[in-house]
Design a protein around this nucleic acid. Structure first.
Lengths: 245, 245, 245, 245
DNA sequence: CATGAATGAGCCTTCATTCAT
DNA sequence: TATGAATGAAGGCTCATTCAT
């Protein structure tokens, strides 16, 4: 078995080497900028070798995105298990989002590829499922917190708003701010110099708006967020580094 | 001069004909699906002629996006001038966003092209500015409403939150939900069947969270939004049709 | 119109130049041996240029085959209109076959490509029809001669044998001998040094076997064939040269 | 020696397994459709292993063709040893050809591969000789019958026509009709619905034309052929099955 | 001998752009 | 100004063959 494993490890090593080289190309030049020729050249491997590891170009992207989403899910998982009121866990998720946005900016950017250009359709179902599962798990974690808050009577869901729909609002505001931050270089010139902290305020407002107890003013909210950040960031870094050599 | 003008008009006519034909191709087949050959063939003009109007393929996309943003700005303009409390105007903008998302879905999709794939960098500064200006004007309209609300003492801005930063939250939540709606086909399976109405609730919550008067419950908010929609949609349709034969 | 024609002529010139260069490659190295790269290189034109003339590699082959079959048909046409008994015209066709086999050996070889390897399916219907028509016309010419012989009471068709079916025998024996001559290099070593004259004898025997009047012995048959050859070859050469610069 | 033989048998077993798997691939997808990857995958052996048995892809085809020709030769052998006048043996060969065409259609198709595409040149001389020998033996069988007919004074060879040359006519007509049947899907639409029986008539006519005794009318010829078929087909099936599990 | 990852030349095709007419 | 043939780099991908293990 050890015998076998060595060869397999070598193969996996090569696989992840391909991803390691493809990532920065993809990030700096986009999907169109990643050509198999270039990839092979930079790898100093033959083109055919890459095709032994990935059925086509799209699969490479999906593999990278799967990695990224795996990180995101781990971040969420860690945030969802902290002690304290559900609102705190919700805020911890916000902190996780901030971390992901700031320190895994490339991962976030790449998650976008997959949402466009028919990359999705050209890749294998196996990898597609991997990503879909990750997405569902993320949603489950956040919705779980909402449900827990309701159980603990810290939150009353407005009628006609399911837990997932409440989550959607936070998802949208975070996601939207991240996309805008990444793609609108004019943001500072429009008067938004620190999108992350702005979004923190909005999320607090939103939580307060839903009367999610304990209701907080911005000062306290910020304070708690900082505390959470201090507690969680070490874990987050570990997660990130575990996935990125 | 009249002579010249006629010729210029002919040129502009051709320019907009190119755009008219490029648009549906772009929408149905993406950026890669738009080839100059195909465009020229459908135009029944020569490829070279197209190059007399647009320096390169990217410019065409940017021109189309400029058109789209022009619509969006007009929508915003019309929403910003209705009578009544600033909060109502803010809600009117939400209605405008809904309209844009639902009835100008293609325009929205195209705005995205430009944020990716290096299209931006390959196009002329002139067109880039055009788009940037539009974006700034949109922001100015919304920020103007916020400032007006403050003036009218209907809203107190939290300290450390500028008008534009408050706007950013609404921008982000609307933008995020739109992107997610367009690109995440799994949304309904995650429990979000009607993103638009969900976001309406969230926006109301957010406004309430900021104590933006008149504070409303969801029923009334929805009622007012409906009224605004009824009032504004005719104008919106006019705007849309003016820009799209 | 003269203006227009000049450009069109240039294009057609290029088209036939492509064919002129593709032909020997195809003949010496087969379909697999013809690569667009090689073709372009030998043409000293860019690869793209070739694709402006032919949709794909298969179309080139079909174009060449169409040329070849056009020659064959013209040969048949000329043979079918000579004076005298139908049997003589039938023999003239045999002479035409001999000419084609001997002097258009490459054309014959190429007709084969099209019958295999899915070349047919990848080419445009227009070219397919061209070839199909040619084939049908050839058959029509020969079957016409048979029918004429029956009318003139020079031949009684065996019952249960249609005119086309009688033709099929001659088609098969000529076609078979041509294929074998071209692909069986061992023929002389098997004792067949001059397939063409052997087949001439067989055809005569076959005609006699059917009691096709005037019945001939081999000496006379050969003599008549020679006479026909002498008369027809000049025309044949003209036809060939008209199609091959 | 027994030890060695066991190993050798294993090797031969593997060799024929390769051929067994390659055959249907080749038949359904042509030469280009047979890839070593696919072959190895279906074999559940490694690609390298196949190369221990066959120097290259072409050799596999040649080996299969050798098998096919071996069948053909056996068919001929069996036809050549029946009792009665030589003409009957000649007709038996025709029956053998019909059997081969109808029931070994794939074998026939494959014989064609080898005559084209430069497969021949890329394969070893050893295998080339194998095939050539087979061909010669086939010719020898048929020519033997002709010579025997001359000896028995059932046939007078036209002067200037050797035994092999007489054979060539029959070879050509049979071969030609087979090729045309296999590759010209338009045959029925040209008026030839049953090529095999048409060729039977032509062969009878040819034999009669050579005054090969006993001369027969079509009815009797057909009757005799049927009788031969009834007698020989069981043997033919045995031969076929012996070579194909 | 068996293995199968690595190879890399080669394949066909596309298409934005240019430029002589 | 309009034309559209020519360009040619670039693209994704295949696959027979090799060779270290």
């Amino acid at each position: 078995m050890v015998e076998l494993t060595r060869k397999q490890r070598e193969i996996e090593l090569r696989t992840s080497e391909i991803l390691r080289i493809a990532r920065p190309i993809l990030i700096s030049d986009g999907f169109r900028g990643l050509s198999m020729d270039r990839l092979a050249f930079q790898m100093e491997y033959a083109k055919g070798t890459i095709y032994n590891h990935f059925k086509n170009k799209e699969e490479i992207v999906l593999a990278l995105v799967a990695e990224s989403m795996e990180i995101r899910r781990s971040l969420f998982e860690q945030s969802g298990i902290i002690q304290g009121p559900a609102r705190l866990r919700m805020m911890a998720l916000g902190v996780a989002c901030e971390f992901y946005t700031q320190h895994c900016a490339d991962d976030f950017a790449m998650e976008q590829w997959v949402r466009q250009q028919g990359i999705w359709d050209k890749s294998s179902e196996k990898r597609q499922n991997l990503i879909r599962q990750c997405e569902e798990q993320c949603m489950a974690i956040v919705a779980g917190i909402v449900r827990d808050a309701v159980l603990r009577q810290e939150l009353v869901l407005p009628e006609s708003l399911g837990a997932e729909e409440l989550v959607f609002g936070f998802w949208a505001i975070n996601y939207g701010s991240q996309v805008l931050s990444h793609t609108s270089p004019s943001l500072p010139s429009l008067g938004i110099s620190n999108p992350a902290s702005v979004i923190r305020i909005h999320c607090c407002t939103l939580l307060n708006g839903f009367h999610w107890n304990p209701v907080m003013d911005y000062a306290r909210s910020n304070q708690e967020s900082e505390a959470l950040a201090e507690k969680l960031f070490p874990v987050f870094w570990t997660i990130k580094n575990r996935n990125r050599a």
